[in-house]
Design a protein around this nucleic acid. Structure first.
Lengths: 341, 341
DNA sequence: CTGAAAGCGCTTACAG
DNA sequence: CTGAAAGCGCTTACAG
C-alpha cells in the first residue's frame, strides 16, 4: 500500500541502503544508479517517511517555535505573524519544518517545551520572547539543547545566543527626540514588566530623561496590567495629574492606536496637545490618524536571524554563543510636534 | 545517555511492552505495576520518543496548518494569528501538535503539502484558505487524506468538510444595511477574485443590489491587485467617476483602514461623505477613526471548529463530510451614515 | 561504487 | 495481567 524504500530497491535491483544514499544524494553512488533509482521512485510515487528518517538519523529537521502566552494581545498583534514569516522563510530555505507551540499558560508552555525537547520532536527551539526568570529558558539552558531567543535573556546573557534590537539605545533616542521637541513631561506606556523588552525600553527612557536633567516621575509609568483592564481609565488618571504629560513613549503601535482613540474621546488632540512615538512600525501606522511616528524594528529580520543562528547551532554544536543586533529605523510621521512654551 | 523504554523496563523489572502499555495507560496493566513503572520513569527522567512512537503506531499526533501565500497582507493580517489561536486551543486540548506550512508560492505550498502528507509527517491538514482551482486541495482530496478547510471549497463542496461563515448572506445583509440608509452608489472593495471568500462576498453584494433594483456597476468593483500596487490611485479613480460611490463595502478591516486614510488625504470624510462597512472586526476597529462598522466573523471559532472536524476525521475515518457555518455578529459603529438626498 | 546487517525507540498482535 | 517477538521505514558503520 505504502511505498517504502524496499519496494524501490527491489524494482531498481539495488539494496535498500543504496536507495537511501540516493535520497541523501551521496557522492558515493554513481550517476547511472542514481538516475535509475530516481526513475523508479518517480514511477512508484515514493516519498521518504519522516518519522523513520528521524528515528534512524536522529534528526527531525524541524524547529520548535514558542509563542508567549500573554504578551499584550499577542494573538492580534502582527508582531507574531511577521516574525514567523522571517523564521519560515529561512527555515524553508534550509529544509527545516516549523513546529508551533502555543501553550496558554506558562505551565503549559513549559510542559510543551520539555516534551518537545525530551521527546526529540524538534532539533532546536526559538523562543519568541524573553521573560524574567523564565523556567522554560532555564530548562533549555540546563539541558544544553540548541535554542535561540528573539529578545534579550535576563540571565546568562553571555552564554545564550539571541537576536534583539538595541532597545535601550533606541528608546533613549526616541525619548531624546521628544525632549528636543521641547517636551519635559513625557510618560511611558509599556507592556508588562515581566518582559525584558519592557525593562530595556523603560531604561532607555529613563536614561534620556536623566541626561536631560528631567526627574523620573513614577506617575508617568503606565503598564500593561492597567491598560488591559481598562485602558481608558488608566489614561484618564494619567491625563488628570497636576501636570499631565505632553508626550507619550508607547511600547507598541497597537497600544498607541488605542491611546490615540481614547485621547480623542477625551478631546485631547494628537499631536497638537500631546505627542506620541511608538515602536514596531506596523503596516497600519502609515494610515492611522495621525500617521504614527514609530521605530521600525525589522520584525521579520529578527525571526530570520534567530533561525540562522539556531540552524548553525544545530548543525555545528560547538558554535559559540552570540548576540545579534538588528538595526532599526526611526520613521518620522505626524504624531509629534514641537512643544509650545 | 538517552533514557529509553528498555532502561525503564529493566529497572522496573518488567518487559518493555509493559512500559509501553503504562505510557498508553492501558487498562490491562495493574495499578500496582503502573505505579512502580511511573516511579521509575520519573526517577530516570524518561520521555517517550515521538518519532519512534509515530513510526510504530503510525500516527504522528500532529496536524499540518497551511497558510495561504498571497492573501492580502497575509502576514500582517491578524486573521491568521487569530485563527491559529482557535486551532491551537483545540489541538492542544486533544494532544495534537501543530506543524506549520508557509510556502511563499503556490508551488512551494503544494510541494510542502505533498511531502508532509506522503511522508506522513502529519495525521491531517487544515487549509486556511480556499482558492479557485487549487492544486493542493485537489491533491488532498484525491489521496483521501484527512483535511478540513477554513472557507468554502470551490469544487466538490458536498464531499469536503469545511468551516465557513455564510459569506453570501452576511454581505447581502450588510449591503442592504447601506441601501436602507439611502445609499444607491455602493462600491465593493475586495480581495483577490482567486479566493472563494471574495467571490462569495461579491455575490452577496450583487444580490442585495439586485433585490433593491440597483444595477450592478463594474466600475464600482475594486480588487486586491489594484490596491496592492497603489491603493491611493485605485481609490482616486473610483472617486472621480461621474457618480462616485457614497458607500463602500470592504472585504477586510485592514483594507478599510487604508481606504479611510486615503480618503482623508483626499478630503473626503467618513462617514459624512462616504459610508464604510467592513469585515473581521479586528480589535483595532473599535479604536479607528471613525470606529468601524464591521462584521465579526468569529475568527478563532473558525479555527477551533475546523480543528474539531479534522480530529474527528482522523480518529474516525468514516466520518461523513460536513459543512459548519459559524455565526457572525454585525457590529454597528460610526462609519456609516444616512445618505442625505 | 554497492550490499548485508544491525539498530533507531517505540507498538501491538499473539500467547499464556 | 504480563512477556517475547516481530515490525514500523529508514540510516549508517563495516566490509568488500
Amino acid at each position: 500500500m505504502i511505498v517504502t524504500i524496499k519496494d524501490v530497491a527491489k524494482k531498481a535491483n539495488v539494496a535498500p541502503s543504496t536507495v537511501s544514499r540516493v535520497i541523501a544524494n551521496s557522492p558515493r553512488i554513481s550517476e547511472k544508479t542514481k538516475k535509475r533509482v530516481r526513475e523508479v521512485m518517480e514511477e512508484l510515487g515514493y516519498y521518504p517517511n519522516f518519522q523513520a528518517r528521524s528515528l534512524a538519523a536522529k534528526s527531525t529537521q524541524s524547529i520548535g517555535v514558542i509563542m508567549p502566552n500573554s504578551a499584550y494581545h499577542a494573538f492580534q498583534n502582527p508582531f507574531f505573524p511577521e516574525v514567523l514569516r522571517g523564521i519560515s522563510k529561512n527555515a524553508h530555505a534550509n529544509k527545516y519544518g516549523i513546529y508551533l507551540s502555543t501553550g496558554s499558560t506558562e505551565e503549559e508552555i513549559y510542559a510543551e517545551v520539555t516534551s518537545m525537547v525530551q521527546g526529540r520532536r524538534v532539533d532546536g527551539v526559538i523562543l519568541l520572547y524573553s521573560r524574567i526568570n523564565d523556567k522554560t529558558m532555564k530548562f533549555l539552558q540546563e539541558t544544553n539543547f540548541p535554542f535561540t531567543v528573539v529578545g534579550r535573556p535576563d540571565q546568562n546573557e553571555e552564554r545564550i545566543t539571541f537576536v534583539d534590537n538595541d532597545n535601550i539605545f533606541i528608546t533613549k533616542q526616541v525619548t531624546k527626540y521628544l525632549i528636543e521637541l521641547g517636551h519635559r513631561h513625557i510618560a511611558f506606556v509599556g507592556g508588562s514588566l515581566d518582559f525584558v523588552v519592557t525593562i530595556d525600553r523603560l531604561n532607555g527612557y529613563k536614561l534620556a530623561l536623566n541626561e536631560a536633567g528631567i526627574p523620573f516621575n513614577k506617575d508617568y509609568m503606565v503598564h500593561e496590567e492597567f491598560i488591559k483592564d481598562n485602558g481608558k481609565e488608566a489614561l484618564k488618571s494619567l491625563m488628570s495629574l497636576d501636570s499631565p504629560p505632553t508626550a507619550l513613549v508607547t511600547q507598541d503601535d497597537l497600544i498607541a492606536y488605542e491611546m490615540i482613540s481614547h485621547l480623542g474621546d477625551m478631546n485631547i488632540k494628537v499631536p497638537e496637545d500631546i505627542s506620541i512615538v511608538s515602536f514596531n512600525n506596523l503596516m497600519l501606522s502609515e494610515h492611522s490618524k495621525p500617521p504614527l511616528t514609530s521605530v521600525d524594528i525589522c520584525i521579520d529580520q529578527l525571526g530570520f536571524e534567530a533561525t540562522s543562528c539556531l540552524i548553525e547551532k544545530i548543525e555545528k554544536p560547538d558554535t559559540l554563543p552570540k548576540r545579534i543586533t538588528i538595526p532599526t529605523k526611526f520613521i518620522e510621521r505626524k504624531s509629534c510636534e514641537r512643544r509650545q512654551s
